[in-house]
């Protein structure tokens, strides 16, 4: 019933989750479902697949997805419209400034400059885009699993 509600709406805001499909991304959409006995709303999550041929969406991104006029495959019903918030690159909606934790990035940089920024410190301007360490040192874009079999091969996603 809840899934039907999700597939009906034209625009959805979902969080990208790990997906092995080549041309599509998987999204977790949060909805509130009414329990008619308790007359209370409870959180439920539905999973929707959206067409993303270039794999622009990365795990954790908050993305606006749009319903396709006709269903593309059995699974893929939507297509990606816009990446609203990339994961780990938070922007304050009121001021439009970048935020880290509870502080503005500019303010942190100003403090660093007063104390004397070190040469080895992290620099936002020269930092490459997200994803350059994928499958090298960062394995957070995939679902890891507990290693259950020793086949002599390297299993990078096994914990």
């Amino acid at each position: 019933m809840a899934l039907a509600a999700a597939s009906k709406s034209l625009l959805l805001l979902g969080e990208c989750v790990p997906c092995l499909k080549h041309n599509a991304s998987k999204f977790k959409v949060r909805r509130f479902e009414l329990d008619t006995n308790l007359l209370m709303y409870f959180r439920t999550w539905e999973f929707v697949y959206a067409l993303d041929p270039e794999k622009k969406c990365k795990t954790g991104d908050v993305v606006l997805i749009e319903k396709c006029p006709e269903q593309l495959t059995r699974l893929i019903t939507h297509k990606v419209k816009e990446i609203v918030y990339p994961h780990g690159d938070v922007i304050d909606p009121l001021t439009g400034k970048k935020v880290v934790g509870g502080k503005f990035r500019d303010h942190v940089e100003a403090v660093n400059r007063i104390y004397g920024k070190t040469a080895t410190a992290f620099d936002y301007d020269s930092a490459p885009d997200r994803g350059w360490l994928e499958d090298i040192k960062d394995f957070s874009h995939v679902d890891t699993y507990v290693k259950y079999h020793e086949n002599g091969e390297d299993q990078p996603y096994a914990v």
């Binding site: 992290f122 930092a127 960062d138």
Partner: peptide, 19 residues
């Protein structure tokens, strides 16, 4: 979650694998 670029830089600098 807060700062992805810094996270990547840090695990690369300290040579840590994050799973």
């Amino acid at each position: 979650r807060w700062d992805y670029k810094k996270f990547e830089w840090l695990i690369d600098t300290l040579n840590i694998v994050y799973k």
